Computed example of a mutant assay.
Amino acid sequence: MKKLFRNLLFFSAIGSVAILASCGGDEEEPLPAAPSIEVEVEGVEVTGSAISAVEGETATFTVTVTAPGKFNTLNISGSSTKTIPRTDASVTLTEEGTVATIVIEYAFDAEDVGEDLSWTFEGVDDSDQKAQKTFTASVEAAPVEVVVYTETLIGGQSNATLGSFYDAEENKVYKYAETRDTHSASVDFLFFYGDTNKYAIAAMDDADANTAFSAALNVTNALSAIMPTKNATKFKVTTLTAAQFDAIGDVDALASAYGEVAADASKVNNLEAGKVFAFVQASARGSKKGLVKVVKTDGTSGTNRSITVTVKIEPSED
């Protein structure tokens, strides 16, 4: 009996030690909930996590990290690399430090066109728990703007005040003598008025234009024989309205409006306000395409005839 009692005491002591050992150990505190991340992108077209941008646009990323264990760091990798701690001036924190908002901008330039771009945003909390979100981007080249010259006034063949010969590269108008002497190579078209053609724009190699200027100046073959250079600009009429012309701002839109049919006439005639015609320069001038809108026709006699035009032309290559 005494032996049994001693054994019970022994096992009781062992159990007590085990309980005490169990109660006396340090337990690890449970981790807070993992962080989450949201990214809003503005300034560009976004579909899901894919960005479609145009050269010159800027993407604004607004990153919000919600971290119950407190926000620590935002890591950015990919096309931009940066580590932003919670002490950074760009970080806006709640008082508890559990929500952080960071705004990052990226401006797309010519070097980005055709490249594979990406950004991974990684929010980290004080327990080194992480949340990520990745965006990719494709970038197109910016549209090439057309050159626009508004309300250029050109005089007829008998107008002693206004020049009749037009340089579409420089938007300059020259009189007959200065064209003949120094500027014929830079003239793309001229204006003349005739009984049949009425208000007409023509190249310097046009026969009717030669007849009109020869009669007005009392010079035989005033253009065909005397002008040192006669650029063979070509023209064609269009069905464009004035409003459609006004809406054209880039080279692609101009090419679409010009159409697939080549300009092949040496002049366009019977012009009036609102009419739009197309031209293509001579090869020596670069063969650039252009569109012209007639703003106004004016004058009642040869001495005061004029036409006012707006010109849109492809830019010269650098």
Rank of each mutant, 00 (worst) to 15 (best):
A209H: 00
K236I: 04
F213P: 03
A216K: 13
V219Q: 07
F213K: 04
D208A: 02
T239D: 15
Q244E: 14
A242F: 06
V219I: 14
K236F: 08
D208I: 00
A232T: 14
T211Y: 00
A222H: 12
F245M: 15
T238A: 15
V251N: 13
A216Q: 08
V251H: 09
S214N: 03
S214D: 02
T233A: 05
I226S: 08
K234C: 01
V237T: 15
A242S: 13
S214H: 04
T239P: 03
A209K: 02
A225I: 02
A216N: 10
A232C: 02
T238P: 13
V237S: 15
T211M: 02
D205A: 01
V219F: 09
D208T: 05
A232W: 01
V219C: 08
V219P: 05
K236H: 07
D250R: 14
N231F: 00
L240Q: 08
L240T: 12
A247K: 09
A216L: 06
N231L: 01
I248T: 10
M227F: 04
T229P: 01
T220I: 04
F245H: 13
N210W: 00
D208K: 00
F245R: 07
S214C: 06
G249V: 13
F213Q: 06
D250Y: 14
L217Y: 12
P228Y: 04
A215D: 10
A247C: 05
A247F: 05
S224I: 14
N218H: 03
T229G: 05
A222L: 12
I226G: 03
L217T: 06
K234F: 06
V251C: 11
T233C: 05
T238S: 12
A242V: 05
D208E: 07
A242I: 07
A242D: 11
A216G: 10
N218S: 11
D252L: 03
A242G: 08
A222R: 15
F235C: 08
D250G: 14
T241A: 07
F213V: 03
A247Q: 09
T211A: 04
K234M: 10
A207Y: 11
K236Q: 08
T239A: 15
V251F: 05
V251D: 10
L217A: 03
V251I: 15
T238F: 13
N210Q: 00
K234I: 02
D208F: 02
L240G: 10
N210K: 00
A207L: 11
